[in-house]
Structure formats: C-alpha cells, structure tokens
C-alpha cells in the first residue's frame, strides 16, 4: 500500500491564518532570521558535542560503542529508522481516518 492511500483529509498547511492584527510583526522567535540563526547554532552545538565525545574515553565493552562519534550517528540512524518504519511500514497498514471507531 502506498503512502497516498492513507486518508489525510486535513494535512496542516502553512496557509492557516494567524489571528494577529494586520501589520503586527511576528514574534521574534518565529522570524526567518531567528530560525536561520537557530539552525546555525544547532549545527554548531552538534559539532561541539561530537567533538567533546571524541575526547571522552568510556570503557568500551561491546567494541563498536567505543568507535569515534558512535553515539552521534547511532542516535541519528536509530531515529531515522524508527520514523521510516512508523511512516512507511506501520502507518500505511494501520492508519485509519480519525472517526474510524465512531461509526
């Protein structure tokens, strides 16, 4: 079953209207400039923790967890795998529209 067959009647869109008075500036946290800055800061933080991890030496028991930057890529891959499994394997099989049980 392909992703398209899942009922998604109301996928959110960026177009949903905020109830701000016209002309009001967006909250500083959601301005594009801030978001860009957050990305830069976030990526720098990622690089920092990986680098810090390289300099800490835990006693490795199973081997692979002692390899450089193991926890960085393992955390990332594990999450990607879980999302892919949820979204592309389990979702199409088990997702039903919201009112499924109300009939």
């Amino acid at each position: 079953m392909s992703e398209e067959t899942v009922t998604e009647p109301h996928v959110e869109t960026a177009a949903s209207a905020p109830a701000e008075p016209p002309g009001a500036r967006a909250h500083w946290l959601v301005r594009p400039g801030t978001i860009k800055l957050l990305w830069v800061f976030g990526l720098a933080l990622l690089a920092l923790v990986t680098w810090l991890g390289l300099n800490a030496h835990p006693h490795a028991k199973f081997g692979i967890e002692g390899t450089p930057a193991f926890f960085s890529w393992y955390g990332f891959i594990a999450c990607v795998a879980m999302v892919v499994f949820a979204k592309f394997i389990l979702g199409p099989l088990l997702s039903r529209r919201d009112g499924y049980y109300d009939d």
Binding site: T7, E8, S72, W73, Y74, G75, L90, R96
Partner: peptide, 26 residues
C-alpha cells in the same frame, strides 16, 4: 547529549514526514 541532539537533528531533517495527519492507528 550526542544521542539526544542527533535525535533532534533527525526530527527536524524529517519534519515533512512528521507532519500530523487526522488519523488514528489500529
């Protein structure tokens, strides 16, 4: 910190896949 922050990276990289849909799961 590595596990968590890279998990966070995965979340934002895959944000389009995380979009909420009006569905329940059996």
């Amino acid at each position: 910190l590595q596990l968590l922050l890279y998990s966070g990276l995965a979340f934002f990289v895959m944000l389009p896949l995380m979009k909420r849909t009006l569905t329940i799961t059996l």
